[in-house]
Amino acid sequence: MKKSLRLFSKVVVLGLFFSLFFSSNVSAQGVFNDMHPNMESYQSVMALSDADIIHGFSDGTFRPYDQVTRGQAAKMVVRAINLDPGQEVPNPNFSDVPTDHEFYPYIAVLAFHGLMGGYGDGNFGINDKLQRGQMAKLIAHAYNIEKHPWKSGQFKDVDANAFYAPYLTGLLEKNITTGTSPNEFSPGKFVDRGQMAIFLHRAEQTRGKNP
């Protein structure tokens, strides 16, 4: 009888172990119902989600192919580099970013540290889609990647005098970004949420972090 009870207890313990193991795996892979392991951005999205850097939507989706806005990008970067959005900083006075806006504290702290600015007309462009050229400058600033004069002829669509050009060399050397083709960077193309996760994940890894 005692042997039967001991055997039963072991079976129960093993059953609980496997149940917990498999359920944790399922939850780790099932955070977003629109993300699948065969997606290019899957590993990056899952890693940054586990690190509480990026979040999805209330319906359980991440929407990796939605274009990321400048406001969303600001929040992602602040969380990635551990800036405190609760820090008391001066109001950057962007005309399209009221102080009660969801993204205000993230934009304000980035502006205070000189990591992301607005446009010449006084707007931040909070709902504007983030372009790849803007992404390059933002990531390079946020991760202190040294800028160099653009000399490479690799991308025919990169103007050496463009605002983002000095930041590209460092990003390319560290494999944080690549071109959209062997000879094009597509600086004006919009960044989607999955791509932004990839860029951030690679940037995190360059500074010895492995989220």
Rank of each mutant, 00 (worst) to 15 (best):
L7A: 13
F8L: 13
S9N: 08
K10Y: 14
K10H: 10
K10F: 13
V11P: 02
V11F: 14
V13A: 13
V13P: 03
L14S: 10
L14H: 01
L14E: 01
G15S: 12
L16P: 06
L16H: 06
F17P: 01
F17T: 06
F17E: 03
F18L: 12
S19M: 11
L20S: 12
S23R: 09
S23P: 06
S24P: 03
S24V: 10
V26T: 14
V26I: 15
S27I: 14
S27L: 15
S27V: 14
A28Q: 14
A28G: 08
A28M: 12
Q29H: 11
V31F: 04
V31C: 02
M35N: 03
M35G: 01
M35K: 00
N38E: 15
E40Y: 10
S41D: 12
S41W: 10
L48A: 02
L48V: 03
L48C: 02
S49Y: 14
S49T: 15
D50Q: 15
D50M: 11
D50S: 15
G56W: 02
F57G: 01
S58L: 03
D59K: 08
G60N: 06
G60M: 06
T61R: 03
F62R: 00
R63E: 03
R63D: 07
Q67A: 14
Q67G: 13
V68G: 07
V68N: 07
T69F: 05
T69I: 09
T69Y: 06
Q72G: 07
Q72Y: 01
A74R: 01
K75N: 10
V77F: 11
V77H: 09
V77I: 15
V77L: 15
V77C: 11
V78G: 08
A80V: 09
A80P: 07
I81M: 08
I81V: 13
I81K: 06
L83D: 05
D84P: 03
G86E: 06
E88G: 02
P90I: 07
N91R: 09
N93C: 13
F94L: 06
F94N: 05
F94T: 05
S95G: 09
S95D: 12
D96V: 10
V97S: 03
T99R: 08
T99Q: 13
D100Y: 11
H101T: 06
H101E: 10
E102V: 02
Y104N: 00
P105K: 01
P105G: 01
Y106W: 01
I107M: 02
V109N: 03
V109H: 04
L110I: 07
A111G: 07
A111F: 10
F112H: 14
M116G: 12
G117S: 09
Y119I: 02
D121E: 09
G122A: 06
N123Y: 11
G125N: 07
G125K: 05
I126L: 13
N127W: 02
D128F: 05
D128Y: 13
K129P: 03
L130C: 03
L130V: 04
R132S: 05
G133A: 08
M135F: 14
M135K: 09
K137L: 09
L138K: 02
I139P: 01
I139Y: 00
A142Y: 05
Y143G: 04
N144Y: 12
I145W: 10
E146K: 13
E146P: 04
K147Q: 15
K147Y: 12
